[in-house]
Simulated scan of single mutants.
Amino acid sequence: MITVANRIYVNPAYHDQFEARFRERAGLVDGMPGFVANHVLRPTGEGEPFVVLTFWESREAFEAWTNSDAFRQGHARSGTLPKDAFTGPNVLEIHEVVQSGGPR
């Protein structure tokens, strides 16, 4: 399993609108083969990014998503916020899960 963390720096004046985009998202990723989960993490400190965290069965599954028509359709909505809503470039990180835990 892998995680993909997209760190997105959002102007605080646009936090509510940014969060609304995800609450109202098309959900096209949900049906993709190999997709496990999606979490949108709100920053708790000033100047910190939002983190859109997705979990995938494999890197190949994630890459298939990014090359799909569904990806293009889902991200076409990203133009709904003006450029000044973002305070810096996105930072994409991909990690392989080597251990995962939960309640026993």
Rank of each mutant, 00 (worst) to 15 (best):
I2Y: 07
E96D: 15
T87N: 05
R21F: 08
Q99D: 06
R25G: 08
A61F: 07
D84E: 14
E93Q: 11
S78D: 15
A76K: 04
I94K: 08
G101T: 12
A26Q: 14
E63K: 09
R77D: 10
I2G: 06
E93D: 03
F86E: 02
F62D: 07
T80Y: 02
N90V: 04
G27L: 05
I2R: 01
H15P: 00
G88V: 04
T80S: 15
F62T: 09
V51P: 01
N6W: 07
V52M: 07
G101V: 12
I8S: 07
R7Q: 15
F71H: 14
R25S: 07
L92M: 13
A26Y: 12
G34L: 06
I2C: 05
V40R: 06
E96R: 14
A64Q: 11
F22K: 01
S58N: 01
P103Y: 02
V91H: 10
G34E: 02
E46W: 10
P33W: 05
N90L: 03
N90K: 12
L53V: 11
L28Q: 05
T87F: 08
A64C: 02
A37C: 08
M32E: 14
H95F: 14
G88C: 02
H95G: 13
F35I: 05
T66E: 14
H95Q: 11
R77W: 03
N38P: 10
V40C: 05
P82S: 03
H15R: 15
P49D: 01
S68T: 01
R23W: 10
K83V: 06
K83G: 08
Q99G: 08
A37Y: 11
F62I: 07
A64T: 10
R77G: 04
F62P: 07
V36E: 14
N11C: 01
R104E: 13
V36H: 06
L81A: 06
E60W: 03
N67R: 15
G102Q: 06
F50D: 06
A37M: 12
V97T: 07
T66R: 15
I94M: 14
F35W: 08
E96L: 09
R59F: 07
I2P: 03
R42T: 09
W65K: 03
